[in-house]
Nucleic acid binder design. Structure first.
Length: 124
DNA sequence: CCTCTGACTCCTT
DNA sequence: AAAGGAGCCAGAG
């Protein structure tokens, strides 16, 4: 997609790509909470496209203002992959720094930290 | 236009 | 509990 070459994206002039929609939704995840890929997909009207969310995040240029580290998989784990070249471990560190408890098996209790966007109707 | 790549999820053994 | 398979589809080249 055509990105604005100068400055940040402008919602009026930029035709939003799928990536942009993802980043926008992700940016709404509150500090200290997490969301799943599938949840983000559903939020942007792409139910069932969880994989695509991960691929969008991979395209993100780091460092980024987008709280990309708050997105984990439905099992409550940070998705580990050699292809991420270490960003998965960075993600774990960032989550811990926000007070999210991660156990020895790298599991996160969704029961405790999962973001519930329905409670915040002002978003979007 | 065609093909390939994957940070996922759900359903079935 | 754990593993296998099918479906998911936007970008990049």
């Amino acid at each position: 997609m055509t990105m604005v070459s100068t400055g940040r994206p402008n919602e009026i002039t930029v035709k939003k790509s799928f990536d942009l929609l993802v980043y926008e939704a992700v940016s709404h995840i509150p500090f200290g909470q997490v969301a799943t890929y599938g949840q983000i997909a559903e939020l942007i009207g792409a139910y069932g496209c969880a994989r695509q969310i991960g691929w969008s995040l991979k395209r993100l240029r780091l460092p980024s203002k987008i709280p990309w580290h708050r997105v984990i998989n439905a099992k409550g784990e940070v998705s580990m992959s050699i292809g991420r070249e270490g960003t998965d471990w960075i993600q774990i560190d960032l989550l811990k720094s926000e007070g999210v408890f991660i156990d020895q098996e790298l599991k996160i209790q969704l029961r405790r930290y999962l973001w519930k966007p329905d409670l915040l109707k002002d978003s979007e």
